[in-house]
Design a protein around this nucleic acid. Structure first.
Lengths: 140, 140
DNA sequence: GTTGCATCCTGTAGTAACTACAGGAGCAAG
DNA sequence: CTTGCTCCTGTAGTTACTACAGGATGCAAC
């Protein structure tokens, strides 16, 4: 019965899904182990078989990681999305918190960049008695 | 002979040097284990005793970490500084490489911030059928 | 039908830079 | 002499992977 549907629901080996999603094979197995990716079905000999939905989830995870979400956050996002469509407000909360932490990281890095750029600019590259780069690190 | 000098070279317990440098006790022992901080002298009962120079090095490490240098980079900086004052050019090289990586991290984060801020702004917080936050993560 | 290679499996250990115990000993004050 | 603080070593946990080791399977060519 479900034969035609099954035929359309492409089945991929771990190597194939890895190539198609850009997620490393070892990483896919790791995601399964830490329960961010549900365990796929298996062939009789025990090889993993992935379908369309697995690929979608894996791509979701990859995008999330690229955007700097932790696996915990991604898990939360996935499970919010899954059972009964919990609430968009919760999604917004996770994303807002993440946005705030990104912004504070940017501020830190920009400060840091100023300090470093200044020291490097003042550095002659000669063996001067006082190196400006070492100076900013040194206790004062 | 060196009695007067020793008297001036204050000796601190690990707890004291921790308080004065702001580096956690466990972290100090860790730095010793991974050879970024030289092993200090000990009391007869085996407790670590730190001097003025140790404190200076520890502060250097802390500043370096705050500025995002890795322990490997800091070790290099310390050893460049130490044996025969190698060359300021090498210091400049390490710092410049680090500056470049800081700049590229800033660019990544600013991009990310734009994407996230946009999604969060478009999110109503209601249980909408299509959540803009989940959409940017989802495969398209 | 077997040889050979690619791919897959599990399980463990390594990475960076710590942090957090467990279990024991030293030390100073009351 | 007991209480409580600090210290000691050594090991294991954290995050998000990556890298094996050692073995099984699948498939194609000869």
């Amino acid at each position: 019965m479900a034969v035609i549907t099954n035929a359309r629901a492409q089945s991929l080996s771990i190597g194939e899904v890895s190539r198609e999603t850009g997620v490393n094979i070892e990483t896919i197995r790791y995601y399964e182990r830490v329960k961010v990716l549900p365990p796929p079905s298996r062939t009789q000999s025990g090889r993993r078989v992935y379908g369309r939905e697995d690929k979608r989830v894996l791509t979701f995870i990859r995008r999330g990681r690229e955007l700097g979400f932790t696996l915990d956050e991604i898990r939360a996002l996935l499970y919010l999305d899954a059972p009964g469509k919990v609430s968009c407000a919760e999604v917004k909360e996770i994303a807002s918190a993440h946005l705030a932490s990104v912004r504070s990281k940017i501020i830190d890095l920009v400060n840091l960049e100023g300090v470093l750029a200044n020291a490097v600019a003042r550095c002659t590259g000669d063996a001067a008695p006082a190196c400006p780069v070492l100076d900013i690190l040194d206790c004062r």
